[in-house]
Design a binder for these strands. Structure first.
Lengths: 356, 356
DNA sequence: TTGTATGCGTTATCAC
DNA sequence: GTGATAACGCATACAA
């Protein structure tokens, strides 16, 4: 990569010369043993100030960078955490993963990311690869995991959390209460006088989060005595186009509904767009509310009423739990469910019948 | 993690018993040497079918998972690639990183992700950490890197690519021509008869991509003889709110412009929202076009005219280049710039003056 | 406080 | 085709 240069008169060009240097190199340059260098780097307090600075100088001079593999082999840890989170739609992923990465980085850990497409998400080989890479801990998405997962983690004594999940007898979860979230939306609409509503949500068959959301909605609808007809219910992939299409279908077949709840804000944005283009007045003729997995609900026209899903907090909480559990002392207490809140904006209003 | 159980009569419960097992364990169970096991796993063709299947049975029985650190130490490679891509805004990141991860995974490599906040993005410690972890290759965002970066990569003999960049004498880049992209937008508007236009873009001071975009725009504007007044130009962070605010400001102070170009689609979505709420007819009174870093440009009201930025292709191309370069043979040819295209939608129309 | 020596679990180079 | 054996680069228990 570096082009050959005319020999300078300095005997050796320290950086970029012949590959990375080792502890032994640093040691001989500093005139100490390799053990001392090792300690100077990882346990400075055990070393006299004088030799420590000599060592550091040598490190600097050689551009020494430790060999993590050797370190990991000897120390039995890699300072690495694996994340296994499938790419579900375009949504949610970045916020969650970034928060996780950021939190772990603060603790000196690096994130090994495995983001399979949905179809491969439950391939046990993925976790196996992560374990092979020697991750010290693992963050999983959801509580539903392929069978071998937990026994693999157990044999390898690797702490883990399940994100975006609430209960599991297999291990700790960080998440929030989807039922409570759904209740916020439904109560809001019911209080406004809406009776017959629709729902456009994610696919429940292969997505436990969409399923929880759906169940929460059903429960809240039943509790408030609202009517959610089959014809007013659509499952689809999370996405703008899907939301647009779903709302178009709903307008044709759903009957006299006055409000629609969307499973996430991509769906909602598409749905809103469909309403706008057809000249259906929002919220006069049709109210719209959504779960907010992303960031833009407030910037649409009109802005979306949403339940704030604490994605970033989930990532942070997962990171903190893992860090705590890696610091060793005692395994931290199981995380508490995160709070959710409703943000009311202009897409919801009184139901037409209750109007004048 | 596993609770103590009453001693079963089977002498040993193979999985989840006492930590991960090693090559030696597998070897003794299979009645061969550890060298043979190693070969059976990584070079099956060098082994007789009989012993190979005995080994595989033992592997299965013990739930053996290789120790990547030991493997890396001996084989001098980790099957791991580092990505160093700052979190710029909410945007772009996921598409690019996911495409990269996905491509690398197909080649058997795992992605080590470092996604610092913008402020820390140029901290050399980040790359050092990645190198310490032993990454076999590195993907960087942008051609502007802190000074030590390239020498570090050189000493460690680690192949790398710079993503979202076009030229660099330091190494290969994957990207697209921002000037050409800007030209597509500007030509489109000019052809429609627009003369005075505005621009809402990202911050050029600390973002080389925003800068390239801005320069490309200036060049195209000059070439077509359009007028882009200072008062009609705003730099801000990429985001919905920022776009909303910027457009609000523009409406007050920009004078008689008939079209606005936005630096990305988050900005554009916010800007469009601001126009909608103020009742400014789009595209009759004001045309809007944007660079499309994301996915939703077509689902707003009206849908956004955009230049398609090939984010996913960049991730894939970067991944492929790294894989090719890791397979060793000969370093692959430098990637060619990716094509960009204009997608015309309803936010652009003839300039009012050219109308009737 | 510092040096010495052993082991971490693989791969790879030899002989057989 | 298979079995010993020597690295690989570091951490750490132990000795000094």
């Amino acid at each position: 990569m570096s082009s050959p240069r005319a020999p300078s008169r300095r005997p050796a060009a320290p950086p970029s010369r012949r590959g990375p240097s080792s502890l032994a190199d640093v040691a001989s340059l500093a005139g100490v043993s390799s053990g001392t260098v090792s300690r100077a780097l990882s346990r400075p307090e055990m070393i006299s100030e004088a030799t420590r600075s000599r060592v550091m100088a040598a490190v600097e001079r050689l551009g020494y960078v430790a060999n993590g593999s050797a370190r990991a082999l000897a120390a039995r840890r890699t300072l690495t955490v694996g994340a296994l989170v499938p790419r579900f739609g375009t949504s949610s992923f970045p916020t969650l993963v970034q928060a996780l990465e950021s939190t772990l980085a603060q603790g000196g850990y690096t994130l090994l990311l495995s983001a399979p497409e949905h179809a491969r998400a439950h391939d046990p080989a993925l976790l196996r690869t992560l374990l092979e890479r020697g991750v010290d801990a693992v963050a999983l998405l959801g509580a539903e995991q392929p069978p071998q997962t937990f026994s693999l983690l157990a044999t390898h004594r690797v702490p883990f959390v399940m994100m975006w999940a609430t209960h599991s007898d297999q291990g700790p979860c960080v998440g929030f209460d989807e039922h409570a979230a759904a209740a916020l939306v439904v109560d809001h609409l019911a209080d406004l006088g809406h009776r017959r509503i629709g729902f456009v949500g994610g696919r429940t068959a292969d997505n436990e989060r969409a399923r929880a959301r759906w169940r929460g909605l059903l429960a809240a609808v039943a509790r408030r005595g609202l009517i959610l007809a089959d014809a007013a219910t659509i499952e689809t992939d999370y996405g703008f186009r899907e939301g647009y299409d779903a709302m178009s279908v709903l307008l044709e077949r759903a009957g006299p509904i006055t409000a629609v709840v969307c499973g996430n804000d991509y769906l909602a944005a598409g749905a809103l767009s469909a309403l706008n283009r057809r000249g259906v007045a929002v919220p006069e003729a049709m109210s719209l509310a959504s779960f907010n997995d992303n960031d833009f609900a407030g910037y649409l026209t009109p802005p979306l009423t949403t339940v704030r899903v604490p994605l970033q907090q989930m990532g942070e909480q997962a990171g903190h739990w893992l860090l705590g559990s890696l610091r060793g002392t005692s395994p931290p207490a199981r995380p508490a469910p995160l709070p959710v809140s409703l943000v009311v904006r202009a897409t919801t209003g009184p139901a037409p019948a209750a109007r004048r």
